[in-house]
Amino acid sequence: MKRQTTTILLLLLSGTLALAAASHSHWERVPARDHARANPFAGNPAAAVAGERVYNDHCAQCHKAGARGDGGKHPSLRSEQLRAVTDGDLEWFLRQGDLAHGMPSWSSLPQAQRWQLVTYLRSIQ
């Protein structure tokens, strides 16, 4: 009985943490330090080409070719919202993902590839 209660409490705690994490907009949660970070590849056409390759390998399966989205659960990445945020915000979001809403964390990608991806996304806005 005691074991069951502990299990239920742990599950509730996990659920609460998950909901708390999901209840704010992604961009509001970006730490100031990450928000201000500069993209080392900003405006670099070669990095945008490499970033497109990274996009095709990892992102196009959901967000579709050209980052136009699937019209449903997977949004277009050519949006006003993305134009409004900083490169640092985008890199942070790629690293974090949004697990509660289906976006995987891409922290497993090397940081340079995440910046290349940001460069590509900037180039198509």
């Binding site: 990095a47 390759r53 090397p110 290349q116």
Partner: peptide
């Protein structure tokens, strides 16, 4: 660790990335 962090501009199966 990947042998190279940045992706190459050219797609190569033998790229260090």
């Amino acid at each position: 660790r990947p042998l190279r962090s940045a992706a190459g501009a050219h797609d190569s199966a033998f790229g260090l990335d």
